[in-house]
Amino acid sequence: MEDKNVLYHFLRDDCSEEERNQLHTWLANDLDENDANELLLSIWNKTANKAKSSIDKERILEGVKAAVKAQTTESNYEYSEIALAAPKQNKFTSLLAVMSILIIVLAGGYFLTDRNSVNVDQLHVARQIEKTTSKGQRSSILLRDGSKVTLNSETTIIYDDNFGLDNRRIQLNGEAFFEVTKNKNLPFTVTSAHLVTRALGTSFNVRDYVDEEDASIALATGEVKVNRTDVSLKEVKVILTPNEQITVDKTSKEWSKTVFNPDYVLSWKENNLYFNNMHLADIIKTLERWYNVNISVVGEGIEKLKYEGTGKFERQSLENILGSLGYTMGFESSVNEKQIIIHLTN
């Protein structure tokens, strides 16, 4: 994860002022208890065993407790020495870990490590891995942890080369179906522009295209926790059970939970298309992405045309789909290789 890499540079004392500000913002706004546990565990796993054995955990814990207590009465702090201890499993110690990071960084002091305890040079800055599909393309990826990701057209996922070892974080732009293997120690997290999904072992669909009005998460099996990417809305969480879907209106920022039909919402994985009460403009975007074509509209009134009801098109050609839609919605179309023209007749 990029923020984690910035932290590693911060520990080395070689990050820029911009990176330092980025880290401050992340710790202040986005870091929660699970993130802190994962972050500290990541650093702990990259620390040499010899270094771990020399850490005085009790001294460190008492120092953190004192720092948390002092936070209630003081606004500025200076610390000369602190080391990273192995993350504890109870909630109280996890909270102390989060607060200690916040106190040290936000107070403007230095995050220093005991040189006899943690060899910072051994920390590995993760390399980012990016997988992308273009228009008209769909693909499947088997991840290191055994999880499978199916990418729809024009979709990008980004994860680091430590995925499956000390984290299972993925950034998404587009649409993908995730089949997640169980690992209670490493939650599987998918972050898109508007939604964050956390799961241990389940399968779900995330759709968040930059050019669409809505973003959604549909759960096929298991259970997931969903919250917003937007920091100001992040505290609101929703738990989904199978066949439930959360949809966010990107303009109003309102979200709603509904029951969905898997045969329709997940039909794209079988190379099938379905449209449910969609405006023609949105259907055109889907067809362009799906068939890797450009569609032009001649005439006025496109904003009034809406496909009422639900239609599923199983592995049909673009010509057949346009013919069916045109008959229902009242338009004609002509196809010339990859250039398609829709003539509005109403």
Rank of each mutant, 00 (worst) to 15 (best):
V231M: 10
E175P: 04
K237C: 13
S252H: 06
P187K: 12
A220M: 15
V190N: 04
T221N: 01
R228W: 11
F178R: 04
R169M: 13
T258A: 12
K253I: 11
N183L: 09
F204N: 06
N152S: 08
Q245D: 07
E244P: 05
E154A: 10
K182C: 06
L240C: 05
D214S: 12
S232A: 15
T221M: 00
T251Q: 15
T221D: 01
V236H: 13
S252L: 09
T181G: 02
S216Y: 10
E254F: 14
K250N: 09
E223Q: 15
V210P: 06
G164Y: 01
F163M: 04
T197F: 01
V238G: 08
R168V: 02
V236G: 02
D211T: 07
A193F: 12
K182Y: 04
R228C: 13
R228D: 10
K234D: 11
L151I: 02
E212P: 11
S147W: 00
I239E: 12
S192F: 02
T156W: 03
V196E: 10
T221E: 01
I158A: 11
V149K: 00
K253S: 13
N162P: 03
E212N: 15
Q171Y: 11
T258W: 07
A218S: 12
N162R: 11
I217V: 15
L186H: 07
H194R: 09
I239K: 10
N183G: 05
D211S: 09
D160V: 05
T191F: 13
I217S: 03
R228F: 14
D160E: 05
T181C: 06
Q245E: 14
P187S: 09
T258Y: 09
S256Y: 15
Y159A: 06
V149S: 00
V236K: 15
V196S: 08
I157V: 02
A215N: 07
V224I: 14
I157P: 00
E179L: 13
S192L: 09
E212F: 13
P242D: 02
G201M: 02
R207G: 01
L151D: 02
A193E: 15
T202H: 00
Y209Q: 05
D161G: 04
V210D: 10
L172K: 06
F178M: 01
V226C: 06
I157H: 00
I158L: 12
S256D: 15
L233E: 14
T221Y: 00
Y159D: 09
T197M: 07
F260S: 12
N227V: 06
T155D: 06
H194I: 10
V210Q: 10
V226G: 05
I158F: 12
V210C: 12
H194D: 11
P187A: 08
K257E: 09
S153C: 09
V196P: 07
A220C: 10
D230A: 15
G174N: 03
I158G: 06
V210R: 11
V210H: 10
R198L: 14
T241N: 10
Q245K: 14
V180E: 00
V180W: 01
S232T: 15
F178I: 03
T150C: 07
E235A: 14
N227R: 11
G222N: 07
F177H: 03
Y209P: 01
V236S: 09
L151C: 03
Q245R: 14
V259C: 07
L195W: 00
E213W: 13
N227C: 12
V259K: 14
R168T: 07
L151Y: 02
V259G: 09
N183A: 08
K234L: 06
